[in-house]
Design a protein around this nucleic acid. Sequence first.
DNA 1: ACACGTAGAGAACTGGT
DNA 2: ACCAGCACTCTACGTGT
Length: 322
Amino acid sequence: MISTINRHARVCPECGNPKVSHNKEKGEIICIDCGLVLEEKMVDFDKEWREFDSNDTSQRRSGAPMTYTQEDRGLGTQVGVKSDLSKFDRRTKQKFYRFRKWQSRVASGLEHNLREALAEIKRISSNLNLPKVVEEEAARIYTLAAQRGLVRGRSLEEVAAGAIYISCKINEIPKTLNEISDVSGIIKNEIIKNSKFVARELNLKVLPINPVNYINKFASYLELSPKTQTKAVQIIHKAQKEGMTSGKSPRGIAASSLYAACLICGEKKTQSKIAEITGVTEVTIRNSFKEMADKLKLRKEVEKGSKIFKQTKETKKKAVTA
DNA sequence: ACACGTAGAGAACTGGT
DNA sequence: ACCAGCACTCTACGTGT
């Protein structure tokens, strides 16, 4: 989890330097070149020195896990609410009320902003039924943006919606701008504008997914042989070399390459079956396959595969009738 | 049932003004 | 900031095998 959510923050957005220094005492990650603080208020994940159980010699940490979905990352202390104070006498209660008042007063502008924005991110995520990891990533992106002063002069709701959009893309969650716009109440253009701005300033690379990553999963659902899988990967590599994959849906590329590989290896699966598993339509598979077959000269291989498929089908038939 | 083709519409992005 | 244009994908058909 930690490695996932921190993976985008290791290159300095200011000078592009990948060399960063981790100052554990201050809980900061700093660029060695320009000194820019990339991340602050980090948590030390080293061993806990205390022991709470004499029988247990292993050293443990305690408390709830750290989360970016709270402005203090779930690590802060909150002075109790009224119900917690019921057991105290009047004087003690008044003391705690004063503490609470001061706690809210001393909270910085950034903390107030984060509290509002993270609540908004939580609300949008919940309405869109987004996985926890997407909410966490969006919260992390917003927190970094706020720490770098990118929210200043912008509406926090707009930046929050932008963070959600980036997070969905990073985590491969197919949510459309319209859906995010409907739930957040922010117009599409503003979401695009803010997500681009934040991604650029934080040096977040929202790269398209490599279609090869899908092959194993889809092939397993389709119960394809390792030979067909390898062929599909080869086809994708060829297509990538020919520059056929840019701008296209990686799922579509994976689907059509699997379809082609099935035909070539004589392991026929229908377009509708592959479409069902891969989550793209038959039309997308057809169009993409047609382009691949033409540009990568797969026609001959496909014909050969079809012959093998027919032969094996006939021998199976004969075996059954015999 | 499956493969293939087409039309029209929508979503997302890009570039020009 | 706005808009037009573009490439891509989708739905919804019809047709052929």
